[in-house]
Nucleic acid binder design. Structure first.
Length: 370
DNA sequence: AATGAGCGT
């Protein structure tokens, strides 16, 4: 074995390091196992800030093995370090072979316990419970060296009760694969959401209306505590084809004399994510629209308030917002006026800049940050 | 509910 290969065999990767951890500290820690040839904490080229991982190069491979066996998940600066053999082949690390995803993991289960639980199935390259300042996030990854070990772990562990939770254990899927899978599931929906049918509705009648599209599994009109319809409900069909027909045929049709919305039922989180995204879009659009349409006004007379400012500026266009900045009910002497277009704002600035309002001459500029 | 991050001299 040449020199390089020999040292390679004694190199450990240390991940999940606190950024304050120094070479010195690591040297002291790992020297307790055996002679350390070198330590390298990887740092940002410019800021020199730790990237949160390091290499520990032992002189003897046996010492590296010993460190791996005895120091994995030890806490440094309160963070559990993750030890692995240095594996420089990116494909070997990222192929996903042998990688297992675990969710619904009892929060009391930490890295070491996870490692011990799963090492029964084969050699583990890396194990990690995802966590934040609050502790475990309830999901984890165990990367086995061999796919066969991963398969055994899935077979044996999926659905087991660990602590108070029945864990899910399955093959790891990349984000891309996972998203594709979710899209496929969504496209094969069987559950249908119906809204805007008013309060004159019950399960039986809703079932009557939708049964013509296929066999239903469950039909439910959502009600308030007094039992009154909330105007929306769900119909779950046996087949996707039936659900699809129901959506295609019923969406926009009248029930109780009003057009109803009929579409794929979304999960709550999915719906929330969509609403959030839509809200974000709206916010961005508003910012885009207000670019160049917002005036910053200084040297305001103390007596000028929102209403007066609005009145003065409305002559130049549609004022969407006015605000005289205040502190303890007292004008701070400056404010903002937003128009619906940059043209209106420019006109207002040309006409009003320097004009006296009350006792003082206005100083107007375009507000830069919308 | 949740499908990482991470590889140098």
């Amino acid at each position: 074995m040449n020199v390089e290969a020999k040292y390679r065999a004694a190199s450990l990767y240390v991940g999940d390091l606190h950024t304050d951890v120094t070479e010195d500290l690591l040297f002291k820690k790992f020297s307790a196992v055996g002679p350390v040839l070198s330590i390298r904490i990887c740092r940002d080229l410019v800021s020199r800030r730790s990237l949160g991982y390091a290499y520990v190069n032992f002189l003897q491979p046996a010492d590296a093995q010993k460190a791996l066996d005895t120091m994995n998940f030890d806490l440094i600066e309160g963070k559990s370090i993750r030890l692995m053999w240095s594996q420089r082949d990116a494909h070997a690390r990222k192929s996903g072979i042998g990688n297992v995803f675990i969710k619904n993991l009892d929060k009391s289960i930490h890295n070491k316990v996870l490692y011990e639980l799963f090492s029964a199935f084969g050699k583990i390259l890396s194990a990690k419970v995802m966590s934040d300042e609050q502790g475990s996030k309830g999901y984890a990854f165990v990367h086995f060296q061999d796919q066969s070990a991963a398969d055994r772990a899935i077979e044996e562990m999926n659905g087991q009760l660990l602590g108070d939770c029945r864990v899910f254990v399955g093959r790891f899927k990349s984000r891309k694969d996972r998203e594709a899978e979710l899209r496929t599931q969504a496209s094969e929906f069987t559950n249908v959401y119906i809204k805007n049918f008013g309060d004159d509705m019950d399960d039986e009648r809703l079932k009557d209306i939708f049964s013509k599209y296929g066999q239903t599994q469950s039909v439910r009109v959502m009600t308030d505590p007094s039992g009154k319809s909330k105007g929306f409900g769900f119909v779950s069909f046996d087949s996707h084809e039936a659900a699809k027909r129901a959506v295609e045929d019923m969406n926009g049709k009248n029930i109780n004399g009003q057009p109803v919305f009929v579409g794929r039922a979304q999960k709550k989180v999915e719906r929330q994510a969509e609403l959030k995204e839509r809200f974000e879009e709206l916010r961005k659009a508003r910012i885009r629209a207000s670019r160049g349409a917002k005036l910053y006004i200084k040297n305001l007379d103390d007596t000028i308030d929102d209403e007066m400012l609005r009145k003065e500026f409305s002559a130049f266009g549609a004022v969407s917002r006015v605000k005289v900045m205040q502190e303890e009910g007292q004008s701070k002497g400056f404010g903002l006026v937003c128009f619906s277009s940059p043209e209106e704002a420019a006109r207002a600035m040309a006409e009003m800049n320097g004009r006296t309002l009350g006792t003082k001459a206005l100083h107007i500029a375009l507000a830069h940050r919308p």
